[in-house]
Design a protein around this nucleic acid. Sequence first.
DNA 1: ATTATAATGAAAATGATTTTCATTATCTTT
DNA 2: AAAGATAATGAAAATCATTTTCATTATAAT
Lengths: 155, 155
Amino acid sequence: MNEIESQRRTDEWLDRLQANGYRLTEPRRAVVETIAASQYVLSPFDVFEQARRRYPKLGLVTVYRTIEKLEELELVQRVHQPSGCQAFVAACKGHQHLLICQRCGRVEFFSGDSERMEPLIAEVGRESGFQIEEHWLQLFGQCESCQQAKQSRAV
Amino acid sequence: MNEIESQRRTDEWLDRLQANGYRLTEPRRAVVETIAASQYVLSPFDVFEQARRRYPKLGLVTVYRTIEKLEELELVQRVHQPSGCQAFVAACKGHQHLLICQRCGRVEFFSGDSERMEPLIAEVGRESGFQIEEHWLQLFGQCESCQQAKQSRAV
DNA sequence: ATTATAATGAAAATGATTTTCATTATCTTT
DNA sequence: AAAGATAATGAAAATCATTTTCATTATAAT
């Protein structure tokens, strides 16, 4: 994700906020820019620290409040990890699954692969009697650069 | 899961605790029995309330401490849900996936279906360059009895 | 039985998140 | 462009789940 793309995403999010009756403010812009530009999972405190570089008077409460609105508009989503569930990322459009680096928090999305998933889900539904409404598939590991970082440390 | 099976699981867990140098106490037994017998996700407070029926002097802290030990021994596992991540269930042996009723919290396990999952994981690993170490697959929905409960309410 | 110490529960501490509230900034209306 | 209505802000207080502290009690080894 480059400068132009993240600027585009930021503008889109600000438009969506405004379209939903929310005002555009300096602190809110700082939070939106920070999350929209990041490829990493960010905790509210991470967002706070990074966004304060853009708007130093920013309060942590505003970060929480802005994330809440972005989540409501499905522009960001909470990321659940073995290490905890307080992080967020820019959401992907449509149903996508997550691949997360457990070392640096980098996130990638991959498509659901409905050909493989749907028969499995149907089968489990049939056997269990459950009416299945939602599914989560997440992969955890190490991204390319973290694999390299690990090797060079070991030498 | 019937009376005999849950008694068997309770005994197994108590043995495992003892084998790992932990003492068997009344409050601990009450917590173990409660979780071992349940097919539902339980928050620490749920466990507290239910286990207090067996041992009324039980403190909530002991629930947290016992869950911690059971988790360490991989006898219970934390369950992550859209609605929150504070619940636990008796863990299944081996790698299994979860199916959770979003209405009553009933949990079932289903096997990983490695024939379908492994190629998908390998493919995502190849395309992303990630070294994939772990995966989560969870299905959410309504169990049979909750589907019926919903219908009869509607009538 | 005695003894060392692990476990307990109450209370205090912590950490993340939410609420309250007086002040400030945005956006709409003039 | 100015004024007014009100949404948003940040500091401080409150809340909620969880962890730590500590004096007391219970377990299990001697």
